[in-house]
């Protein structure tokens, strides 16, 4: 059970007829059960990459496999793929359009052809999963706060019962507590529902804290791929491509450079604080 990108490239033509290569020769396997972060600065190709995962964009070269099947072959059902690989775009709350919360969530599963009872059950469960209470089911989407709207938008995708949930910058524009809430939700879906999470971000702090695997992109290529602990050893390389490591990690690296005998392998504030205390008291 996985999504495989094999030698995938993606080019598009600009208005001036010049050609931009957004992705070049990408090889990537996303396994079921992963919590994967795709990081890169603006224009690195990360948003294009995720749009290949459910067939919204078609690779100009190479192949994409879903559960071993070539998604570009004639007998492959793209519709089924789209229901298995749910996509949450940037600022998804801008795409809410139905009059009430429940109607908006039901839109996706209804279009997929789920029967009425199934659709209602799934939509109800999805709203419950994202923490939207029953009292809001018939509320106007306009009456919700920003964070609530975003959760309703995610529920709309969840109601289609995807196995993979792909999110483009799910925390953009949210305040720190709102970010934590969204990530807590993703962790719950990952753990309790077994949904594979793929999220795009330019926050290395978020990648460090939540992901079990980080894919780093630059100029349309994957430049690093591995667990966060391993990725953040490459501080210089990350900085060269406009990223860097979390502040707390960098501080420990700097201390080590200044000659401190300190444990460098730190991902979070807690780990860095412990390493510094160890060094000071050692």
């Amino acid at each position: 059970m996985s999504i495989v990108l094999q030698n995938v490239s993606y080019t598009y033509r600009n208005d001036g007829n010049s050609v931009t290569q957004a992705l070049s020769d990408i090889n990537l396997e996303i396994h079921k059960g992963e919590f994967l972060a795709i990081v890169g600065h603006t224009g690195s190709g990360k948003s294009t990459l995720i749009q290949l995962l459910n067939g919204l964009e078609r690779a100009t070269q190479g192949k994409v496999f879903f559960q071993g099947k070539d998604i570009y072959s004639k007998d492959f059902s793209i519709k089924e793929l789209r229901s298995k690989v749910g996509m949450v775009f940037q600022y998804p709350e801008n795409q809410l359009f139905e009059a009430t919360v429940i109607k908006d969530v039901e839109f996706g599963p209804r279009n997929m052809g789920q029967d009425t009872l199934q659709m209602e059950l799934n939509s109800f469960q999805a709203l419950k999963d994202v923490g939207i209470g029953e009292e809001l089911l018939d509320a106007s989407v306009l009456a919700l706060s920003g964070g609530q709207k975003r959760r309703v938008a995610i529920a709309g995708v969840l109601a289609m019962q995807p196995e993979f949930l792909v999110l483009d910058e799910p925390m953009a524009g949210l305040d720190p507590v709102g970010r934590r809430e969204i990530f807590a939700l993703l962790q719950k879906l990952h753990k309790e529902r077994g949904i594979t999470i793929v999220f795009v971000s330019h926050s290395m702090e978020d990648a460090a804290e939540y992901a079990d695997r980080v894919v780093v992109m630059n100029q349309g290529k994957i430049v690093l791929d591995g667990p966060p602990r391993k990725i953040f050893c490459y501080e210089k390389e990350l900085e060269r491509i406009g990223l860097g490591v979390p502040q707390a990690t960098r501080l420990v690296h700097r201390l080590a450079e200044q000659g401190a005998q300190i444990e460098k392998d730190c991902l979070t504030v807690e780990e860095s604080a412990a390493a510094i205390l160890n060094w000071l008291q050692g």
């Binding site: 305040d175 720190p176 507590v177 979390p246 707390a248 501080l251 504030v269 860095s272 604080a273 205390l277």
Partner: peptide, 20 residues
């Protein structure tokens, strides 16, 4: 107020709590 301090500030707080 739903705000979080930068990591450097969080580190300083933790170290001070440990009597550094």
């Amino acid at each position: 107020c739903r705000l979080t301090a930068p990591q450097i500030t969080q580190l300083v707080r933790k170290l001070r709590k440990a009597n550094i």
